[in-house]
């Protein structure tokens, strides 16, 4: 099966191939495939090339060997069907929450041509999205008036406002406290269920990966490769309770074993 996202024998070196051994070989001979509508999680030791993998898929970096295919096409420029969210919410402090949400629409075609004329409709869309992550009525607040969890929700909304087919999440909950993090797991879970969007989630939290994903990929230490791939068969919709089941904990344990090996 050649999936919605397919990486085949991909190697990437920062500084370009001409950098040779001087450059940092971030990823080597990495192969992976994610189907349309699938929720994939990537786990691995810190610095193993997870963020690099995200950049390769979205066309922000290009490999010196191998192929990156998204939606059946080789990636040669930024892909434009993706939304991204990172550990830092990266909201613009001079814009309100609502204006931050509208930012992608000011850039992505065809919206950028229409947002002036149709502003009311777009504002309504943004407000609906805010409501769906529990941020009703916060549109007029500035980012610094929001808690860390609320900023991260806003950042998620910004990644989704233009209805991308692909959502790329790079350790989006890393900086949040445990309770907020679990709340946001449920937000993401529901977004995925409702929209059927393809999601790639990078995380170092194994419980997070197992709770959310259909499949978990374990990466080796740098240069990153896929060491193991684990299908998660826990039935959906998953409740937070599932994280206390033995089945869940067994999977986490098993992945943990891979990570321990990867770090050696």
């Amino acid at each position: 099966m050649s999936g919605f996202i397919a990486l085949d024998g991909v190697s990437h070196r920062y500084g370009g191939i001409q950098a040779g051994p001087e450059g940092i070989l971030a990823i080597q001979d990495l192969t992976l495939s994610v189907g349309r509508g699938e929720f994939a999680a990537v786990v691995g030791p810190s610095g193993c090339g997870k963020s690099t993998l995200m950049k390769l898929v979205t066309g922000l970096q290009f490999p010196f060997a191998g192929h990156v295919m998204v939606a059946g096409e080789e990636v040669r420029q930024p892909v434009k069907i993706a939304g991204m969210a990172f550990q830092a919410p990266t909201l613009l402090p001079w814009r309100t929450t609502l204006e931050n949400l509208l930012l992608p629409l000011e850039i992505v075609r065809p919206h950028r041509g229409e947002i002036r004329r149709n502003r009311a409709a777009y504002v309504e869309r943004a407000e609906k999205l805010l409501a769906s992550v529990g941020l009703d009525g916060f549109g007029s607040k500035y980012p610094w008036q929001l808690s860390g969890g609320m900023q991260q929700r806003t950042s998620l909304c910004r990644a989704l406002i233009h209805e991308p087919q692909l959502l790329m999440l790079d350790e989006p909950f890393g900086a949040l406290d445990a309770f907020t993090r679990e709340e946001l797991w449920c937000v993401i879970r529901d977004l995925h269920a409702v929209r059927g969007i393809t999601i790639i989630l990078v995380t170092h939290d194994l419980r997070e990966a197992v709770f959310l994903a259909d499949r978990v990929f374990v990466m080796s230490a740098r240069p990153g490769r896929i060491l193991a791939e684990r299908k998660i068969d826990l039935p959906r919709p998953r409740d937070l309770e599932v994280t206390f089941s033995t089945e869940f904990q067994d999977i986490v344990h098993e992945l943990r074993g891979h990570i321990v090996k990867a770090r050696q």
Binding site: K55, T58, G59, L60, P78, V79, K80, A82, G83, M84, F86, A88, T90, L92, W94, L103, P104, E106, I107, V108, R109, R158, A159, H162, M168
Partner: peptide, 27 residues
């Protein structure tokens, strides 16, 4: 400019001028 912010916009197909107008200059 935070590189992540640049990545978010580039992945939306933003040109350099877009990034300058939306982020660089206000910043």
């Amino acid at each position: 400019i935070e590189p992540e912010m640049e990545d978010v916009l580039k992945a939306l197909g933003a040109s350099k001028l877009d990034i300058m107008r939306k982020v660089g200059i206000p910043r």
